[in-house]
Design a binder for these strands. Structure first.
Lengths: 361, 361
DNA sequence: CTGTTAGCGCCTTCAG
DNA sequence: CTGAAGGCGCTAACAG
């Protein structure tokens, strides 16, 4: 027993399918009140549910928003996803989810799949990469996106424009001032921290990571300090953990050697990495902020109860997700192309970078 | 410039649409090697992307899996979502996301929307509720789901069967032994904890919460202990926080009064609540496990670095998500109806419930 | 093995 | 204000 169709409803109501369509789905004006009522009753009694596929085919639009993330279980992405979901709801659309682990080729496939489903818009949340190994992948992805745009699709990007994209009018980007915020963080830390600085960065070429590293260095410089050493690792917790392990050894050596060894200040380019690094230090018997200061970036909600409270840069993740959804021409003007929406964050210093009594050693 | 269609590809290749369809999309056997090649080239050069809506309409199936969660930013749900996503990928399907805050009426709407899109299956991850205020909502939801099943849809449910559902063959449930696991947790805690027990439960009527509370009480009983007092609060962090605040006051009073006041052991019915409660205690100057022991449930990954490490019951969340996706008849047998897949968890005792040196006070 | 003919369910001109 | 007709892009029975 398949779901009932519009035609069945129309027959039951004794009207034509066209009329039924007009009353049940948004048309100019609902026909004669009495007729309309009859149709609605018929629909009700049959438990009629319009076939969105058919509607989409006929109108060539789907009410779908495609969302691409690296990993939906990563709190950074799930926070953004919440925002996207909220925006989708406001637009009376649904969210189609794709996870790609950041692989350009998977992303391309996701875009193609979204295009196949005639998604009204696509939101790409993952950080862009310009690693050598991703060169070709990026090009193909850009081509796919361009085509999607040319066919009338809208794409929203969090953070950076898509590398190599060239359909100017289709892209909408939420610009996160990663570099500036990282610089500010560095300056604020430099104001009272007087030991060395170390950065735990993600893989070189990951734009978000690169921006934050660059910004941090710039901040140090503007505070009259030399650039920090940069450790490279994975952009996730385990990356932070590994780097943390390496740093822990170094710290311990330093402590046992010169008694004047200064306390290290570690900046991990995102909170999850920072937590990993902190866990590593702890596992080596070191304590924060006593033996080292540490700061992250993002201000992940789930991590706010972490102790010592993590210094970080607060990003309005949910808002970012909401803003990343392009406004498709539903009512008024045609969607303006090439939009850039700026958001801002806030340096948030907490316990993990507090100064400690000098006489620790 | 709309995307190119199969007909265009066929024309360019000099064959009929049917033939083109056969080679480009999965049919019995790809026609003549030479023809096939020609078609593929044509498709390539046009950048042809099949219109999934049209395919769906023709085949009446969509390659979509609907996922319903309370909140995608909640780590419990995002972990499950990751599993669902993985299963979807294996089935070459995409995930449609809906978030409902647990409101039966929103859930009903989501089911209807999924049905409209002809989702091949629907996964409901949120806890069921039998609160009085949800009675009617549940009934309507059940009706909607039943209808969806009758029309050939498959539904997978995490935890409990849908309240009031009655299309036996369509439902597939991943059975989480919440009650048994909570009982085991209680027994293990009772083995070495000798103070009072308190439970921070979610709203009465939330099945998952109820099960865990009941199980915990049963475990205490089997250990020869009286039942624990149960505090009711929201099923989220702030619920745990509020309850924690109340408990903190109580603990402090107890400590200042009789010197023999025993240490409380708090069981919050999920990790997020436990973290909230712990934060509350801390904000009142209390320390864990010194002033109170605390345990949660779920073993949320992001929370594993929390200190003191939280005792909890490990649930294979991602696996649960993966298992919750009904296997639709893609290759072999018709999907077996009314399946119940059991999963299991594991009591995991950590620092937050450790015994402390007696002479704390 | 390929081409032709019908729809899938709906929306949207166009007549009446 | 309503009904009839055509088509959205594709697949699935039939013919040839």
């Amino acid at each position: 027993m398949a779901a009932s169709t519009l035609t069945e409803v129309a027959r039951l109501a004794g009207v034509s399918p066209a009329t039924a369509s007009r009353v049940l789905n948004g048309s100019a004006r609902t026909p004669g009140p009495d007729i309309a009522d009859r149709v609605r009753k018929a629909a009700e009694s049959l438990g009629y549910i319009p076939n969105a596929q058919a509607q989409g085919l006929a109108k060539s639009s789907s009410g779908l928003i495609g969302l691409i993330v690296h990993d939906i279980a990563d709190p950074y992405f799930s926070a953004i996803a919440r925002g996207v979901q909220a925006a989708a709801r406001d637009q009376h659309k649904m969210v189609l989810l794709a996870t790609t682990a950041g692989t350009p080729d998977d992303e391309r496939a996701a875009v193609a799949a979204f295009a196949a489903r005639r998604a009204d818009s696509i939101v790409i949340a993952g950080s862009r990469s310009i690693r050598q190994q991703d060169r070709e992948g990026n090009a193909v992805l850009a081509a796919e996106l361009d085509r999607y745009c040319r066919n009338g699709g809208r794409v929203g990007v969090v953070g950076h424009p898509v590398v190599g994209a060239s359909a100017p009018e289709g892209y909408h980007v939420v610009a996160v001032p990663n570099e500036d915020l990282a610089a500010e963080l560095a300056r604020e830390l430099a104001a009272f921290h007087n030991g060395d600085f170390v950065v735990i960065g993600g893989p070189q070429g990951l734009l978000t990571s690169d921006d934050r590293v660059r910004g941090f260095q710039r901040g140090l410089e503007s505070a009259g300090l030399p650039p920090a050493e940069v450790l490279r690792s994975g952009f996730d917790r385990s990356g932070g953990y590994e780097a943390g392990l390496a740093l822990a050894k170094r710290i311990k050596v330093g402590q046992s050697a010169a008694s004047g060894a200064s306390r290290l200040c570690i900046f991990a380019v995102n909170d999850v990495m920072a937590i990993g690094a902190a866990a590593a230090l702890r596992s080596e018997g070191l304590r924060i902020p006593r033996d080292a200061a540490i700061a992250g970036f993002d201000d992940i909600e789930t991590l706010r109860d972490f102790r010592p409270a993590l210094s970080t840069v607060r990003l309005p993740l949910e808002e970012i997700g909401r803003l990343a959804v392009p406004v498709t021409a539903t009512g008024g003007q045609a969607p303006d192309g090439g939009t850039v929406v700026p958001v801002t964050g806030q340096v948030t210093l907490r316990r993990s970078t507090e100064a400690v009594a000098e006489a620790a050693a």
